[in-house]
Nucleic acid binder design. Structure first.
Length: 800
RNA sequence: GCCGUUGUGGCGGAACUGGCAGACGCAAGGGACUUAAAAUCCCUCGGCAGCAAUGCUGUACGGGUUCGAUUCCCGUCAACGGCACCA
């Protein structure tokens, strides 16, 4: 009897749906397991074969955990706000919500066809007002606590999307979405003070089980550095403050540099004798995008501030001040002390302007290049620091500065505040009213959700304002505080907003009083295992940790970190090894694979394709191997006999239970499947299978191929559903074979093999080895220097 | 430039904590069944030499430690990912 995957898969998917098989339980006395995968953006293209890689892996983990007695929550939803939908709506004059609804339906059908054990009763959609009501609520809390503020600032502006982009979305100077060149534009923007949480976000990494490269990337992104903030007196009377990580080199500071935007320049305007040249430089710098400004290759430029000098606080010498775009206004104090002898950039600049280069750490040759990597060097030309190590000098000078009141220890971060405004339609409206008298006033929580109004056109205005600005009926309102005529904020939130807390809503998606009930959060939080792409490490993952930590601080959630464990999957590439894309013509549609081979084969193949964390090219031919395997498992039913596990396969069965159990936990699905294939080969070699053996086999296989194994369960005459039974348990003692084949080496080279009991004493094994014919021949005429026996593995005889 | 990851057959990939390299699968070749094909089943499958037993060689490259190294150490090269004038 051949296996009809189409009929069987449909049958079980309907049963699971109808019976609510995978609905998370409400019995909070049971141990819980919360598995999470990144919810998709329901694009018009439909599901990508990359989605199921992650979803299948945690589906396997979830199914196994259920069999092991855990109360499992494995939810799914839609991250549905976003530009592609809006752009599609603009082009085709269809409301984004209609487009979203259609795309969601398609995605849902595709996900169901793959047999994932999602709890669909927890389904959420970020564009649902009942959902974004709480996204807005979180914003109001951030506003109340002073973590949301509006700021005039130069922002990354995409001229094509007519939209402000976060630094993260403008990487490399191009728009992440459309690829256009990003320019700078000054706009008033809502900002979130993620920098206030830099230290907490960094420290929190110590307590979570994230794969190391995720932690490293987050640490680099936060970019903590320690140094000193130092005050330099100037001849203008004002203090020019700088941040440095190398206070030890203070004696070598021969000039200073300020960012072109530095506020003191305006203050000093009267004194500056070359103001015109300075203005010209400022203008030129302001026109450049962040990307142009940070191009490393170019030669250093700048203008000296004629008329004002600074005083080096340790040498007492007057030193010149420059402005240059190699100093960033947004980091530290926006000004630096330049130590050309020990900093490459300062060195380059000093060379261009012919400035003195004074060596203060011995060991390099500062006439040729900057001596930067000088941690082991000894101080010189540095007065009271001379002869100290760099480390000692840092400590001493910092103490000295602090005693004199001209400097103090300081920590800085590369992390910037989060630009939270978008001038688009398809996002959460920001619940703020601008009152001429009261300023920015938060909407009362009782008025949430602030629903997106219907508009005629979704296109942003030419001035870059949100399409909502054109909706005067909606925009014009009254101030919630004083009742005077006021206007609504027309910017919307970025797509990251809805995804920053969605895992909280899954816990209790219908709750109308809170994000989720306290009781449910106490039980389910934190997420036990979160899998997603590496591309979200510094954006989504950091943002959501920030929101969660904030919510924890205001006592709105019950755990300090949202995710206990984070793993990451590699991309699935096209057959040619390149990234899958329409333009490359190498896209594989999951629907086609499910149609031709079935969901179980598709799931199995995606797990067998290779190391889960690494990128893997798709290979149509290899899928057949997985199909063959399933067909052979199905065919076992032809030779099944009543009975327990036979002695001839007992250790193989127990070893496989151990291997599959451990490998699923370690996300090594490829070797778990290989172990099942190997066990099948071993059982097949005996030309029959007992019912108990097959029962264990299909239980182990169930998380991978749930449809076929459920069907076999019924056909074998077992009661109920396989997914509601118990995961097999192995016996460590039964994992041991009576005899094992060991290698006998002479000087590290295998010369013979023999079978022994793994429990045989060393003496016995060694003499048996030496008695071996081939070994004896090799040893003839030589004297034995050393004999090594590795239990159950090998014997090595060293002879001369 | 800095940080991180990786380098194993024709291909995807295995190998615990230093212990028989190439598990498992794909592709390929040979055979069985078939009028034929598909499917299925059996055999071979890193390289060189040999009918074979077997020997030598082999985990990017060059060294080192060790009885023994894909694994540890030093150096070199290459690829991928992240950051990139962050003082």
């Amino acid at each position: 009897m051949d296996y009809n995957f189409k009929q069987t898969e449909k049958k079980w998917q309907e049963i699971w749906d109808r019976e609510g098989t995978f609905v998370a339980g409400t019995d909070y006395s049971k141990p819980k397991f919360y598995a999470l995968v990144e919810f998709p953006y329901p694009s018009g293209q439909g599901l990508h074969v990359g989605h199921p890689r992650s979803y299948t892996a945690l589906d396997i983990v979830s199914r196994k955990k259920r069999l092991q007695g855990f109360n499992v929550l494995y939810p799914m939803g839609w991250d549905a706000f976003g530009l592609p939908t809006e752009n599609f709506a603009i082009k085709n004059h269809i409301h984004p919500s209609v487009v979203t609804e259609k795309n969601v339906a398609r995605f849902k059908e595709q996900l169901k066809s793959l047999g994932f054990s999602f709890d669909w009763t927890k389904e959420i959609n970020t564009t649902d007002p009942e959902y974004y009501r709480w996204t807005q609520w979180i914003f109001l809390q951030l506003f109340r606590e002073g973590l949301a503020y509006k700021k005039e600032m130069a922002v990354n502006w995409c001229p094509s999307c007519k939209c402000v982009l976060a630094n993260e979305e403008a990487a490399g100077g191009v728009c992440e979405r459309c690829g256009s060149e990003v320019v700078r534009k000054v706009k008033s923007q809502w900002m979130l003070k993620i920098t206030d949480y830099a230290e907490k976000l960094l420290n929190g990494l110590e307590d979570v089980n994230f794969i190391e490269r995720v932690k490293t990337q987050q640490r680099n992104w936060i970019g903590r550095s320690t140094g000193a903030q130092v005050k330099f007196q100037t001849t203008a009377g004002d203090v020019l403050e700088v941040y440095t990580t190398r206070p030890d080199t203070l004696f070598g500071a021969t000039y200073m540099v300020m960012a072109p935007e530095h506020a003191l320049i305006e203050k000093w305007a009267d004194r500056l004798t070359n103001l015109e040249a300075i203005r010209a430089y400022q203008t030129a710098a302001s026109k450049k995008s962040d990307f142009e400004r940070t191009e490393v290759v170019k030669e250093k430029t700048g203008v000296r501030l004629e008329g004002v000098l600074a005083v080096n606080p340790v040498t007492g010498k007057e030193i010149p001040i420059f402005i240059s775009d190699y100093v960033l206004a947004s980091y530290g104090t926006g000004a630096i002390m330049a130590v050309p002898a020990h900093d490459e950039r300062d060195y380059d600049f000093a060379k261009v302007f012919g400035l003195p280069i004074i060596e203060v750490v011995k060991g390099g040759d500062v006439t040729r290049e900057a001596f930067v990597d000088c941690a082991t060097g000894i101080m010189t030309n540095s007065g009271f620091l001379d002869g100290l190590s760099v480390e000692e000098a840092k400590k001493k000078i910092t103490e000295w500065l602090s005693e004199k009141g001209i400097g103090e220890k300081k920590v800085n971060y590369k992390l910037r505040d989060w630009v939270f405004s978008r001038q688009r339609y398809w996002g959460e409206p920001i619940p703020i009213v601008h009152c001429p008298k009261c300023g920015a006033v938060p909407l009362p929580e009782s008025e949430l959700p602030l629903v997106l109004p219907e508009v005629d056109s979704y296109e942003p205005t030419e001035t870059g304002e949100s399409p909502l600005a054109k909706m005067t009926d909606w925009v014009n309102t009254t101030c919630p505080v004083c009742g005077a005529p006021a206007q609504r904020e027309t910017d919307t939130m970025p797509q990251w907003a809805g995804s920053s807390w969605y895992f909280l809503r899954y816990i209790d998606p219908k709750n109308s009083d809170a994000l989720a009930s306290r009781e449910a959060m106490e039980y389910w939080l934190p997420v036990d295992w979160y899998n997603g792409g590496m591309e979200h490490t510094t954006l989504h993952l950091l943002y959501s940790r920030f929101w969660h930590k904030f919510l924890y601080d205001i006592d709105a959630v019950t755990s300090p970190e949202p995710y206990a464990k984070r793993t990451s999957h590699g991309m699935i590439l096209g057959e040619n090894g390149e990234k899958m894309s329409k333009s490359r013509g190498n896209v594989v549609n999951p629907d086609d694979i499910v149609n031709e081979y079935g969901a179980d084969t598709m799931r199995l193949y995606e797990m067998f394709i290779g190391d889960f964390e690494k990128a893997a090219p798709w290979n149509s031919a290899s899928i057949k191997g997985c199909k063959r395997f399933l067909d052979r498992v199905w065919a076992l039913m032809d030779t099944v006999t009543e009975g327990a596990v036979r002695g001839c396969v007992e250790s193989a069965v127990h070893k496989t239970i151990r291997k599959v159990t451990e490998d699923i936990e370690g996300l090594k699905m490829n070797t778990a499947i290989a172990a099942l294939m190997a066990l099948l080969n071993e059982i097949s070699a005996t030309a029959s299978v007992t019912k108990e053996e097959l029962k264990i086999f299909i239980t182990l296989l169930n998380p991978f191929a749930p449809h076929m194994t459920e069907e076999m369960w019924v056909l074998l005459g077992f009661e109920g559903q396989l997914n509601q039974t118990a995961w097999p348990v192995y016996d460590e003692k039964k994992c041991v074979d009576a005899t094992v084949e060991i290698a006998i080496q002479i000087c590290g080279k295998v010369r013979a093999k023999m079978n022994i009991s793994p429990e045989a004493p060393q003496d016995e094994v060694l003499s048996a080895a030496k008695a071996n014919e081939a070994i004896a021949a090799h040893l003839a005429g030589k004297s034995i220097v050393k004999e090594i026996y590795v239990k159950g593995k090998l014997v090595n005889i060293v002879a001369k």
